[in-house]
Amino acid sequence: MAFKRVSLIVAVAENGVIGKDNDLIWYLPRDLKYFKDTTAGHTVIMGRKNWDSIPLKYRPLKGRDNVVITRDQSFQADGAIVVHSLNEALEIAKKAGDEEPFIIGGGQIYKIALEQNLIDRMHITRVHEEFDGNTFFPQFDENKWKLVSKEDHAPDHRHEYSFSFCIWDKIDDSQ
């Protein structure tokens, strides 16, 4: 069985920041719900630091097959499958019959996935603010992607910052 698509999902500040000291910087409940609803029933693929950043009470992420990538051959993640490469992680998702696995971070894993041209769709929550951070989403060539949907959200009593849910599909340049 082949994938329908391989997707990534991320929340990114205007200056490319996605985290600081292995933690989220902002709290946007609607974005957390979007993440949960979008990835439910799928394989979520993440790096070890990302796994470690998930609070213990939420690990493994419920309703999803959790796959953790690490170079550490002795690493174990309770409730997750541990692999040592992104391709190995995708193979696990394929064997599980998942048509759309999700790469959920962090920065290094996103960079590898984009560099290796493995991503077909990107779910990017653009947080309309700049933040101090030390983990970044890699730059991508917008000419190779098409923005297929954008949903804007203004700040409100539960959301300090405005944000937009954006879905980008890779342009098929094989024609």
Rank of each mutant, 00 (worst) to 15 (best):
residue 154 A to I: 11
residue 77 A to Q: 08
residue 33 K to L: 10
residue 147 L to W: 09
residue 17 V to S: 04
residue 126 R to P: 00
residue 105 G to V: 09
residue 21 D to Y: 13
residue 50 N to R: 10
residue 113 A to Q: 07
residue 20 K to L: 11
residue 122 M to P: 03
residue 120 D to S: 08
residue 119 I to A: 13
residue 20 K to N: 13
residue 39 T to P: 00
residue 160 E to W: 04
residue 120 D to A: 06
residue 157 H to N: 11
residue 10 V to Y: 05
residue 128 H to M: 09
residue 148 V to D: 11
residue 104 I to V: 15
residue 45 I to W: 11
residue 94 K to D: 03
residue 50 N to P: 04
residue 26 W to L: 04
residue 26 W to I: 05
residue 147 L to T: 03
residue 164 S to F: 04
residue 25 I to F: 10
residue 19 G to L: 11
residue 170 K to F: 11
residue 91 E to T: 13
residue 22 N to P: 07
residue 82 V to A: 10
residue 175 Q to W: 02
residue 73 Q to L: 12
residue 108 Q to Y: 00
residue 83 V to D: 05
residue 22 N to A: 14
residue 2 A to Y: 10
residue 80 A to W: 11
residue 124 I to D: 07
residue 81 I to F: 06
residue 15 N to R: 05
residue 1 M to Y: 04
residue 5 R to H: 10
residue 145 W to K: 08
residue 51 W to M: 00
residue 131 F to L: 15
residue 14 E to R: 12
residue 163 F to W: 06
residue 116 Q to R: 12
residue 30 R to A: 06
residue 48 R to G: 02
residue 127 V to N: 04
residue 112 I to K: 13
residue 31 D to Y: 04
residue 7 S to K: 02
residue 34 Y to T: 02
residue 159 H to E: 15
residue 172 D to I: 10
residue 65 D to H: 11
residue 98 D to C: 12
residue 18 I to Q: 00
residue 71 R to Y: 04
residue 172 D to Q: 03
residue 146 K to P: 00
residue 82 V to Q: 10
residue 46 M to S: 02
residue 156 D to P: 02
residue 56 L to M: 12
residue 54 I to D: 12
residue 83 V to Y: 01
residue 48 R to S: 13
residue 150 K to G: 05
residue 18 I to A: 01
residue 139 Q to S: 12
residue 77 A to D: 06
residue 105 G to N: 07
residue 35 F to I: 13
residue 133 G to Q: 05
residue 106 G to S: 06
residue 164 S to I: 04
residue 62 K to Q: 11
residue 119 I to T: 11
residue 115 E to I: 02
residue 78 D to P: 14
residue 158 R to E: 14
residue 168 W to L: 10
residue 138 P to A: 07
residue 29 P to G: 01
residue 17 V to Y: 11
residue 47 G to V: 07
residue 109 I to V: 14
residue 89 A to D: 11
residue 156 D to S: 03
residue 80 A to R: 11
residue 91 E to R: 14
residue 58 Y to W: 10
residue 107 G to E: 01
residue 58 Y to H: 13
residue 175 Q to V: 15
residue 142 E to M: 09
residue 98 D to I: 04
residue 136 F to D: 01
residue 135 T to A: 15
residue 26 W to F: 08
residue 63 G to Q: 03
residue 102 F to A: 00
residue 8 L to S: 12
residue 98 D to R: 01
residue 132 D to C: 01
